[in-house]
Design a protein around this nucleic acid. Structure first.
Length: 566
RNA sequence: GCCCUUGUAGCUUAAUGGAUAGAGUAGUGGUCUUCGGAACCACUGGUGGGGGUUCGAUUCCCUCCAAGGGCACCA
C-alpha cells in the first residue's frame, strides 16, 4: 500500500540522515496545503539529537531518493516534512478505483486471522430497542471491515432467555391471563404477540414491587425456568420462540445474520460444572453459601459465580459460553464482545477467571468493546420507566417520513430508512453516548445516510448517460481545485479502512464518506461533466465513477445498502 | 467510601500529542436557462474552571466542578 511505501522511503532517508531507532509515522494533514502525507519525526528526535528540528528535517528530505511516487517535498516551520504524491500516481489510483480495483491492505488481530464478534444480545420477552440497533450497527460493520481486511470472522449472539424479567412476564400470563385470551393471542400476528409480551412484562414488574405474594410467585417461576421443571416450562418455551422469531425478522431487516445464536439457558448446567472445577483449583472460593471470585489481589471486584441457592449467575454461565465460543469454531485469535460499559466489572472478572483456568486459550484474547448507551434527550432509556424507543418503530417512522417527503417507492424508502438510522449511529465514536432525538438523529440531509446515498445516485445518473469504458492516457490535463481535492481522496480510502479495523472504529469510514460526498457535490456544482469535452470529460467521468465505487464499497462496510434511483 | 467513563458552538457532534479545532442542524443572506435542489456558497458561533509536562495539548498528568456507570448472590 502507498502509505507503507512512502513510510519506507522516509525511514531509509531518516537513517541516512542519522536519525535512527525511531519508527516514521505518517499522517494525512487535515489541510491540503500541507501535502498528502506529513511526518513530524524531525520534531520528535530534535531534543535527543540536540539539533534544530528544521535542520534535521531538511537533511532527511535531502536524503529522500528520487521516486516516481513523490512529486514534491517541503520542510515547514517547526520541522514538519510534507510530501506530495505525484499526479501520475494519483491519476493511476483514480483510474483503478473507477475500474473497481480496490485492494484493502491486510490487518489481522492474530496469526490465525480468526475472530469472533459477539453482538446484538437482546433478551427475550423484552423490547428490542434502539440501543440494540446501535449495537448491531457497530457489530455488523466491524464484521465487514475485518473481513475486508483479510480475516475470517464469526458472528455470534448471546441471547438472554432466562432471568427474573422473564419470570415477571410469565407470571402475568400464568396468573392473570385467561386461557381464552391466551389462545386468542396465540393466533394473532407476531407483532401483536410481541406487544403482549412487553405489556405482560411491564405488569409483572409492577406486581413484583406491589405485593410479597406476587413476588414469591415470580421467584418460584424463575426457579422453574432454571430447573427446567414445572408447569410454566412449556409456556416459557413457546413465548421465547415468539421473541426469537421476532429477532430474526429484525436481523434480516437490518442486513445481519449470525453464524451462531447462543441462548443463555443452555449454559447453566455446564456453567456450574466449570465453577466447581474452578473451586477445586482454588480460583473460586466458598463464601456465605455462594461460590465467588475474590478480585482484590488483581485489583478487580469480587463477584458471585454460583449463588447460595446453587444457581449459576450470569458470571457462572459466561464461563461455559466462553468455553463453547473458543472451541466450536476451532482456535480463535480474538473474541470481541460488543456490550455496554456497565458490564466492565463483569468482563474484567470473567476474563480473569477464564485466564486462570486456561491461559493458553484465553489470555489476551477476550476483548470487551464497551460501546456507549443511546440516551434519550429526555434522559436515560429504561424499560422500568417506560422510556424506551423500540427499534422497529424508529425505522418505520423514518420510512414514513421519507415516503411523505420525497414520494419514493416503499422499497427505496425502506433502504433509506435503515441507512439513516444506521448511519446516525455509525458516524459517531462508539465510546460516546448518543443523545437520541428523532427529528435530529434521523436526518435525511446534511451529514446523513441519505445524503451519501443521494450522492451515489447522482454519480450513477451521470454515468448512465456516458461511456467511460475506453481507457485513455492523459496528456495535457488541466486540473481544477475541486477536481484536485477529489483526486486526493481516493488513495486514502484503503488507509481509512485499515485504520478503522485497527481501532474498531466504523465512524472513520462514515466521516470519510461524508467528506468524499461533499467534495464530489461541490465539484458537481461547479463543473459540467457531460457537457465538457475531450480528456477533461473523460477525467471527470473517471472521478465520478471512482466516487461511486468508493461510496458503494464504503457503505457496504458500514452495513448500509445503496439504491440506483431515489 | 472506592473504582471506571465522559465534559468541544443554542442543539447533535468530529479531530493516531501536530499546523488556522472540522461538520451537521438551527438562524441570516445568497446560487440554479446546467448532468437529480435529499444539492451548492457565505456569515454568526466553541474545547467546564485552575495548574503542570511538551517545540506543540481537545488529546497526557494533577486538582476542582458537573454528568453517567460500576463495586456479593439481577441479567
Amino acid at each position: 500500500m502507498i502509505k507503507e511505501e512512502v513510510a519506507k522511503l522516509l525511514q531509509s532517508a531518516s537513517e541516512k540522515a542519522g536519525v535512527k531507532n525511531i519508527q516514521v509515522e505518517l499522517e494525512h494533514p487535515a489541510n491540503p496545503q500541507f501535502g498528502d502525507y506529513s511526518t513530524s519525526i524531525a520534531l520528535k528526535v530534535a531534543k535527543n539529537l540536540k539539533k534544530n528540528p528544521v535542520e534535521i528535517a531538511e537533511k532527511i528530505s535531502e536524503n529522500l531518493s528520487q521516486n516516481e511516487l513523490i512529486e514534491k517535498v517541503e520542510v515547514i516551520k517547526p520541522g514538519f516534512i510534507n510530501l506530495w504524491l505525484s499526479q501520475n500516481y494519483l491519476l493511476d489510483v483514480a483510474v483503478k478505483t473507477s475500474e473497481d480495483k480496490i485492494t484493502f491492505s491486510p490487518y489481522s488481530l492474530g496469526p490465525l486471522k480468526k475472530l469472533m464478534i459477539e453482538f446484538a444480545h437482546p433478551n427475550t420477552h423484552k423490547l428490542f430497542h434502539i440501543g440494540h440497533l446501535r449495537n448491531i450497527s457497530i457489530g455488523e460493520s466491524l464484521v465487514r471491515i475485518l473481513q475486508a481486511s483479510g480475516n475470517s470472522v464469526i458472528r455470534s449472539n448471546y441471547q438472554g432467555d432466562v432471568g427474573l424479567h422473564i419470570a415477571k412476564c410469565l407470571w402475568y400470563i400464568k396468573y392473570k391471563t385467561s386461557q381464552g385470551e391466551l389462545n386468542k393471542i396465540r393466533n394473532s400476528p407476531l407483532h401483536e404477540r410481541i406487544k403482549f409480551l412487553g405489556d405482560a412484562y411491564a405488569k409483572g414488574q409492577v406486581a413484583y414491587d406491589e405485593s410479597v405474594e406476587y413476588k414469591n410467585q415470580i421467584i418460584n417461576i424463575n426457579g422453574m425456568i432454571y430447573n427446567q421443571k414445572g408447569d410454566v416450562v412449556p409456556l416459557w418455551k413457546e413465548t421465547k420462540n415468539w421473541s426469537f422469531e421476532y429477532f430474526s425478522e429484525i436481523y434480516k431487516r437490518v442486513y445481519t445474520k449470525f453464524d451462531r445464536l447462543y441462548p443463555e439457558s443452555e449454559f447453566a448446567k455446564r456453567g456450574v460444572e466449570i465453577c466447581k472445577a474452578a473451586e477445586e483449583k482454588n480460583i473460586l472460593k466458598k463464601s456465605e453459601g455462594a461460590l465467588i471470585f475474590i478480585g482484590k489481589e488483581y485489583g478487580l471486584d469480587t463477584r458471585v459465580f454460583i449463588n447460595s441457592f446453587g444457581y449459576p449467575t450470569y458470571e457462572g454461565k459466561e464461563l461455559a459460553l466462553a468455553e463453547k465460543e473458543f472451541s466450536e469454531f476451532g482456535e480463535l485469535d480474538k473474541c470481541i464482545h460488543i456490550v455496554t460499559p456497565e458490564q466492565k466489572s463483569f468482563f474484567n472478572v470473567t476474563f480473569k477467571v477464564e485466564e486462570l483456568l486456561d491461559a493458553k486459550k484465553f489470555k489476551n484474547k477476550q476483548y470487551h468493546l464497551a460501546y456507549e448507551w443511546v440516551k434519550l434527550k429526555s434522559g436515560k432509556m429504561s424499560s422500568r420507566t417506560g422510556l424506551v424507543i423500540e427499534a422497529e418503530w424508529v425505522i418505520d417512522q423514518a420510512k414514513k417520513k421519507i415516503v411523505q417527503t420525497f414520494k419514493c417507492d416503499k422499497n427505496t424508502a425502506e433502504i433509506l430508512a435503515v441507512a439513516s438510522v444506521k448511519y446516525s449511529f455509525l458516524k459517531n465514536n462508539v465510546f460516546a453516548q448518543i443523545a437520541f432525538d428523532f427529528a435530529e438523529s434521523i436526518s435525511l440531509e446534511g451529514n446523513s445516510g441519505p445524503y451519501i446515498i443521494y450522492t451515489y445516485v447522482r454519480t450513477q445518473s451521470v454515468l448512465e448517460k456516458a461511456d467511460v469504458s475506453a481507457r485513455k492516457k492523459f496528456a495535457n490535463l488541466k486540473i481544477t481545485k475541486e477536481e484536485n481535492d477529489l483526486l486526493r481522496m481516493f488513495y486514502q480510502f484503503t488507509d481509512i479502512v485499515r485504520k478503522s479495523g485497527k481501532d474498531l472504529a466504523p465512524n472513520y469510514i462514515a466521516n470519510y464518506l461524508y467528506d468524499l460526498a461533499s467534495k464530489y457535490n461541490l465539484f458537481y456544482q461547479k463543473h459540467p461533466i457531460l457537457k465538457s469535452e475531450g480528456e477533461t470529460k473523460h477525467f471527470r467521468l473517471i472521478l465520478t465513477k471512482a466516487v461511486g465505487n468508493i461510496i458503494k464499497q464504503g457503505l457496504y462496510l458500514l452495513g448500509i445498502e445503496t439504491v440506483n434511483k431515489m
